[in-house]
């Protein structure tokens, strides 16, 4: 029996828990790494897609490097994220909002406009005053460019995004 997620067989996992013991963000997770694999094994895909853990994972690969069964959980998590990146609500919404802002910036300029990210409320310091102080401190040190850096090939990059969007709309029609 095998069940592949992004080329990884989830049945290869024998639940030793080494991934959860290695995970640097385990303390913030609602479902632990080895539990994600178990839920996939018993077909509880919805529960996995709805957890915050897949958005807390930093893709640091501590788990996969130590896994005695060669299960690459970050590769699985990348695939799970792709099913829900554009969702607005639900667990992990602030992480998704961040990724979507990065992608909007990349789509528009071809590079990420970090000053734009900083002022659009993604610093999450919890107060506008602290956000402002941080942006000022970064500007003072020359660590933020005031204006976006645009590449000549940005239309090519935009083309990549248009193909992704066309693909996603195609899926909805089916």
């Amino acid at each position: 029996m095998s069940m592949l997620v992004n080329g990884m067989d989830v049945y290869a996992c024998y639940q030793c828990g080494k991934c959860s013991a290695s995970c640097p963000v385990y303390f913030a997770m609602d479902i632990l790494p080895h539990q994600i694999l178990r839920l996939l094994q018993i077909g509880e895909m919805d529960q996995v897609l709805d957890c915050e853990s897949i958005w807390l994972c930093t893709l640091c690969s501590a788990c996969s490097t130590r896994c005695p069964r060669g299960v690459d959980l970050p590769v699985i998590i990348e695939e799970l994220r792709r099913a829900g990146l554009r969702r607005v609500s639900g667990p992990g919404r602030s992480q998704r909002a961040f990724h979507n802002s990065v992608l909007r910036s990349l789509e528009r300029h071809g590079r990420v406009y970090k000053a734009g990210l900083a002022v659009s409320g993604h610093l999450s310091t919890g107060s506008r005053q602290r956000d402002a102080r941080l942006v000022l401190a970064l500007l003072k040190r020359g660590k933020l460019r005031m204006w976006p850096s645009r590449i000549r090939g940005r239309l090519v990059v935009r083309g990549f995004f248009q193909r992704v969007q066309a693909g996603q709309e195609g899926e909805k029609d089916v």
Binding site: P24, V25, L59, C60, L117, H122, S124
Partner: peptide, 12 residues
């Protein structure tokens, strides 16, 4: 060990 990566933006 991981430093937290871009969680410093979304999950300080």
């Amino acid at each position: 060990e991981c430093c937290g990566g871009n969680l410093s933006f979304a999950k300080r």
